[in-house]
């Protein structure tokens, strides 16, 4: 399974393995985004995070994001792995790797991927603070959204 480009896993993620998945003789640029568990958010101190996913659909949605990227930025290769389960401070929750012949698309496509993950991929996190816990939702203030369409502006935010 080392070559699945879009994966939900329960074990720690190797950044190197994601980079290998997108390597290409015609890539001049590879960008990675590594989402880690941050200790302090606002005034709250996180002890650990718990991630849950609707796994088969989440992998489909990650693959869809990859397809959207290939359509928007030609000659890109994309790999995304998101981890679920219990994660401690500084542990890696998500890695996005994008390769491209040129650097601009590598940055743009990578940032597009994380924004889309936060819109359409069925993954949820529960914050465990020192004084309680809560499932986090609606970080983007998307109350509802109908489709997994590439254009965010087409979505229904009512």
């Amino acid at each position: 399974m080392r070559n699945k480009m879009f994966e939900i896993v329960e074990e720690p993620i190797s950044v190197e393995s994601l980079i290998e998945k997108v390597e290409d003789r015609n890539a001049g640029a590879i960008t990675t985004f590594i989402g880690t568990v941050r200790e302090i958010t606002g005034e709250k101190k996180t002890v650990y995070l718990e991630y849950q996913a609707y796994k088969p659909m989440a992998e489909k949605m990650l693959a869809q994001i990859g397809k959207e990227i290939n359509q928007k930025w030609s000659d890109t290769k994309v790999a995304i792995t998101h981890r679920i389960g219990s994660l401690d401070i500084s542990e890696i929750a998500v890695v996005i790797a994008v390769s491209s012949p040129h650097r601009k698309p590598a940055y743009q496509a990578n940032e597009y991927a994380i924004e889309r993950i936060k819109q359409i991929v069925p993954i949820w996190k529960k914050e465990q603070w020192e004084e309680g816990e809560a499932w986090i939702g609606d970080q983007l203030e998307n109350v509802r959204y109908r489709t997994g369409k590439p254009d965010v502006k087409d979505e229904d935010h009512d």
Binding site: G35, Y51, A53, Y54, A58, H82, A93, V94, I114, I117, K118, Q119, I120, V121, P122, I123, W124, K125, W135, I136, G137, D138, Q139, N142, V143
Partner: peptide, 8 residues
């Protein structure tokens, strides 16, 4: 049923 997602 997919409540607002919070991955990433």
């Amino acid at each position: 049923i997919i409540p607002p997602v919070s991955g990433g």
